[in-house]
C-alpha cells in the first residue's frame, strides 16, 4: 500500500470517529505555527511593497479563518493588519493626488469626488491600523503605563510596529474626519510605549516619536533640547540601520505641522540615504513601507507645484530647485570674435 493511500485511510478513519474537527484543529495549529515562525518573519524581508500588499490582503482571511479552531495569532494579525492598512493608505494618497489635479483643473465635481474617495481610503486604513494596535495590546498589554513589558528583541519588533500602527491609526482617522472614532489618546500612549525600546536597536524610531511630540507641543520638551536636532539624530539612526521608519515619522511630523522647509530637507536626506545606506535584510519591507510614505508626501508637493507627481528618479529634488547647469553659458558673439 502506498504511503499516500495509508495517509488517506488514517485521515478517513480519524474523520469517521471524530468528525473533521480534529483535522481542522491540527491543521489550524500547523498554520498558526507556520505563520508565526516563518510567514511573518519572511514577509518582513520581502523587497516588493505591492507583492506584500497583495499577498497580505489575499492570505489574511485564510489565516484568520483558522482562529475559529485555534487561538488568534496576535503577532501575525498585527503585521497583516498594519500592512493592509499601509496598502489602504497608498490608495488614499492616490486619491488625494487626483483631488489636487482636479482642483487645479477647476473640475470641482471631480475634486469633491476624489476627496470623498481619499477619506474613505483613510477610514479603511484607520480601521486596519487600529486592529493592528489592538492585537499588540492583546499580546503585550497597553502601552504608555508606568511599567514597560519585558521584551526580547523579537518582541520588541512587534511592540515597535504595534505602537507605530496605533499612531498611524489616529492620523488616518483624523484624515478620514474621525469616522472610525479611533481613541485619540492612543497617540500619547504609543509615544511613551516606544520609549520602552532602545533607540539605537530600534532604528531611531523611539527618538523620532518623542521628538515629534516635542515639535507638536514645544512646551513638553526638556529645557535646552531642540526637537528638530533630536529628530535629525533619530533620522540618522534610521539611515544607519537600513530601517528608515524614523524618516517617515520626520516627514509626517514636519508636513503635518506646516514646516515646509523641514519637509523638503527631510525628503532630501531620505533620498540621499537610499543611495548610500542599504536596507536591512531582515526588515526590508518596513524600510520600503517608510519610503512609500515619504514618496507620498513628495508626490503631493510635486502635484501641488506642477500638476504631476515626483518624476522618476527625482525623489529628493523639487521643481523649483535652482537649476545647476553643467557648463557655463557663454556668449556666442564673444566666442566668435577674433
Amino acid at each position: 500500500m502506498s504511503f499516500l493511500s495509508r495517509i488517506a485511510i488514517i485521515t478517513a478513519a480519524l474523520a469517521s470517529v471524530s468528525g473533521c474537527s480534529i483535522i481542522y484543529k491540527s491543521t489550524g495549529w500547523v498554520v498558526y505555527d507556520l505563520t508565526d515562525r516563518h510567514i511573518t518573519p519572511y514577509t518582513m524581508t520581502v523587497d516588493d511593497f505591492d507583492v506584500a500588499c497583495s499577498t497580505t490582503q489575499g492570505l489574511q482571511p485564510l489565516i484568520m479563518a483558522f482562529t475559529r479552531v485555534t487561538s488568534t495569532p496576535d503577532r501575525a494579525s498585527l503585521i497583516m493588519n498594519m500592512m493592509s492598512g499601509s496598502c489602504a493608505e497608498v490608495d488614499a494618497a492616490e486619491h488625494s493626488l487626483a483631488y489636487i489635479r482636479a482642483f487645479k483643473a477647476q473640475n470641482i465635481d471631480e475634486a469633491k469626488d476624489a476627496r470623498i474617495r481619499e477619506k474613505r481610503g483613510y477610514a479603511i486604513a484607520a480601521a486596519r491600523q487600529y486592529k493592528a494596535y489592538q492585537h499588540m495590546v492583546h499580546e503585550f498589554g497597553e502601552p504608555g503605563g508606568k511599567k514597560c513589558p519585558s521584551l526580547s528583541k523579537d518582541d520588541g519588533v512587534y511592540w515597535a510596529l504595534g505602537n507605530l500602527a496605533g499612531l498611524q491609526a489616529v492620523m488616518s482617522d483624523l484624515r478620514a474626519q474621525s469616522v472610525v472614532n479611533v481613541p485619540k489618546d492612543i497617540a500619547m500612549k504609543t509615544v511613551r510605549g516606544l520609549q520602552c525600546l532602545d533607540n539605537q536597536e530600534f532604528w531611531g524610531l523611539p527618538l523620532a516619536a518623542q521628538a515629534g511630540l516635542w515639535i507638536l507641543m514645544p512646551d513638553t520638551a526638556p529645557e535646552g533640547v531642540d526637537p528638530w536636532v533630536e529628530m535629525a539624530a533619530a533620522a540618522r539612526g534610521g539611515s544607519d540601520s537600513g530601517v528608515r521608519l524614523s524618516h517617515a515619522v520626520e516627514v509626517a511630523i514636519a508636513d503635518g505641522s506646516g514646516h515646509q522647509e523641514h519637509v523638503r530637507d527631510a525628503i532630501r536626506r531620505h533620498a540621499a540615504s537610499l543611495k548610500v545606506d542599504k536596507p536591512s535584510r531582515d526588515y526590508q519591507l518596513l524600510d520600503l513601507a517608510a519610503s512609500r510614505q515619504v514618496l507620498a508626501v513628495s508626490d503631493r508637493l510635486w502635484t501641488e507645484g506642477t500638476g504631476s507627481r515626483t518624476p522618476v528618479g527625482a525623489l529628493g529634488t523639487f521643481w523649483d530647485d535652482e537649476k545647476k547647469s553643467a557648463a557655463p553659458s557663454l556668449s556666442i558673439d564673444d566666442l566668435l570674435e577674433d
Binding site: M171, L174, R175, Q177, S178, L216, D255, G256, S257, G258
Partner: peptide
C-alpha cells in the same frame, strides 16, 4: 493637530 486635524480637513 496640524494638517491632519479635523479643522484643517
Amino acid at each position: 493637530l496640524g494638517a491632519n486635524g479635523n479643522l484643517y480637513g
